[in-house]
Design a protein around this nucleic acid. Structure first.
Lengths: 246, 246
DNA sequence: CCAAAAGTGTTGAAGTTACACCCATGC
DNA sequence: GCATGGGTGTAACTTCAACACTTTTGG
């Protein structure tokens, strides 16, 4: 029988936590703590071995919560990564020696991605992360382990998902402007979108509620705020956009 | 250091192997061998623990090959399943006792689905499968472990994938008719598709080569055979259908 | 000649793309 | 008054859904 807090030494979760700063998509990366309190210079996705008594989603939520204090976020599995040599880089092996009881054991990781509103959270070091920072996805360099591959896969998944379900709202504050939403979609899809066509298309989804409130203090025509209508949104998520080829 | 054929006791793969018999989608299910050579009455997806020295895809290919003798098939990961109680049904636990060294250990499984041409293969018992059979997906009953959930997820993934990439061809013989292709798409999407519209749409993809050969001996107007053009197909798979919402 | 599936075109509606100007505000 | 982003409509084109009849074969 597994004890409550037994770790499973063979299976981990890694989280691709994405945020949007009104210009770029950012991913939350950690600098790893060595056991002596120092940090090596390799950035990594936050992740951890799973406990024996929790399921994969719970493990991903736990990692997310420990790092950000946030709960109830959008979280989606993106797949499992298990190449036998994924832990083979010298710096990774060194780090594993300082934090794992069995540093040589092969670990399969399940990748999740989550979408957070960057205003809800400012990065702060956590137990397992000496440093935490938002990095614009186009500036991400070499990461630990196979984390570059995981990140790429998650971004691809996000693009696929957003084409079918309007999940992007999770990246925005409760009240937002159509301009913000527009910039967000351009950032995720990494291509320019025609302003008028975008607005028309979004409005036709019929999931936005126009608020009687405008921007203040901006040096241009103030924009209306919108919030999104959870009920209609839920219905849409269930059916998808029916945007399929056949 | 892991020895070549060490098993990883915590991680398995399960395969949803799909075939098409010109009418229904079928899934390949096994009856489990007990150690005394008998079979319990629970059907299951074929799967196995992974070896320490193979990656997840290799493990899935191995299971597929051991069961069917087939290689080089379409194979796609559908996700990881790891609820702590997924092995909890009494009959499942009994079976595990007869085949696993550590029957109580929690196993996370990675699900794959593959598409095979049913004519390339007739089910035959394998080492780990006392019985093997094609079961039409609408006739699948209660399966072992969480295999019903895995099957459902894989079917959903297949529907999503086929809307974006023409992967369905893997389920057909090299030479096929548009009627077969039409019935296949109806079986996968589980809804009727207008004949003329379907044909137009498929032809516009420009991945079919019309062969100078017709059906013989059929009691109706003979249909032309087609094969599909791998080069154009590859290009299309890379770009996707661009069938996306934004 | 009958049964069975193959094969084929058109029309109206909906959706997509491309494109340019005025508006409200802060400074 | 100027710089900034907000906000709006239309026309040409493409795609989509719905729909019925003729053809070829075996028996």
């Amino acid at each position: 029988m597994p004890h409550l807090h037994d770790l499973n030494p063979r299976v981990s979760v890694d989280n691709v936590i994405l945020g949007f700063d009104d210009e770029n998509l950012n991913v939350l990366l950690i600098g790893r703590s060595l056991s002596d309190g120092r940090t090596d210079d390799v950035l990594a996705l936050p992740g951890d071995l799973i406990f024996e008594n929790e399921n994969l989603e719970m493990a991903a939520e736990r990692v997310l919560f420990e790092l950000t204090g946030l709960t109830d976020l959008f979280l989606q599995q993106a797949g499992a990564f298990g190449d036998p040599n994924r832990l083979a880089k010298p710096k990774d092996r060194e780090w594993l020696k300082t934090v794992r009881q069995e540093p040589d054991v092969r670990v399969i990781t399940i990748a999740f991605f989550s979408l957070v509103n960057m205003n809800d959270y400012t990065p702060q070091p956590a137990s397992f992360a000496r440093s935490v920072q938002w990095v614009p996805i186009q500036d991400v360099g070499d990461l630990a382990f196979d984390h570059n591959r995981i990140l790429t896969t998650c971004l691809k998944r996000l693009r696929e998902t957003i084409a079918i379900k309007p999940v992007g709202f999770n990246l925005l504050p409760v009240k937002f402007t159509l301009g913000q939403l527009h910039r967000l979609y351009e950032a995720i899809l990494d291509k320019p979108l025609d302003k008028r066509n975008f607005r028309r298309k979004i409005q036709k989804l019929d999931i936005l509620t126009h608020l009687d409130e405008k921007q203040e203090g901006v040096p241009h025509k103030p924009s209306s705020f919108y919030k999104f209508n959870e009920i209609k949104y839920q219905k849409l998520v269930e059916t998808g956009f029916d945007n399929f080829g056949f």
